[in-house]
Computed example of a mutant assay.
Amino acid sequence: MEIKTHESIDRSLCGEPVMVADGGSEVRMECLQCMAADASGLVHGGFIFGMADYAAMLSVNHPNVVLGAAEVRFMKPSRVGDVLVAKAKDTTPGERKHLVMVEVFCAEEIVFSGSFTCFVTKEHVLAG
């Protein structure tokens, strides 16, 4: 499927789309050294959130989609070298307001889950 949103995002920091379909997406990201919060290799949660947010945007896949709110939970730490996969599902496709559920996995374990409220605006939020 054609990607219609977030065309200029840095995929090394937010992940690489591996599947984009109507109402769903999957994004894969390798945790890089530049994401480490400390010498132990703990990955800063902001990178994981960014990946999950990107997956949510791709599940809506509209040029004017924006994030309005998020309720998230970090369940396990991630380390430099981990390969994460975010799986997003739009539970309200076809509406202006979308509720997207996202889970991020490291192998078979869930490390993050969240509910993202996304809006499709009539024009780009920076227009005008």
Rank of each mutant, 00 (worst) to 15 (best):
N61C: 05
G41H: 03
M29K: 11
L67E: 08
V43R: 12
G128A: 06
E109P: 10
A127I: 01
I3G: 07
A39V: 01
L13Y: 10
V83D: 07
E109Y: 11
S8Y: 14
T5L: 06
M75W: 04
I48G: 04
V83C: 13
V102Q: 10
F105D: 06
T5N: 07
I48K: 10
S115V: 03
V80A: 11
H62Y: 07
T5F: 04
G23N: 05
T5A: 07
V104T: 01
V85M: 13
N64A: 03
V85Q: 11
F105P: 08
R79K: 15
E26Q: 14
F47Q: 10
A70T: 02
T92D: 02
A107R: 15
K76Y: 04
A39E: 13
S40K: 14
F112M: 09
T5W: 04
D82I: 01
G81K: 08
F49D: 05
C34P: 13
E16N: 14
I3K: 12
L58K: 09
F119E: 07
M51I: 00
S78G: 07
S59M: 06
V66D: 08
E123T: 05
L67N: 11
P63H: 04
K89D: 13
C118H: 04
D53Y: 05
V120Q: 09
V125R: 15
T5K: 09
F116N: 05
E95F: 12
F49M: 09
E95W: 11
V65R: 09
E26W: 07
N64Q: 11
N64T: 01
V104G: 07
E30P: 13
E26Y: 06
L84I: 00
H62T: 00
C31A: 14
D10R: 14
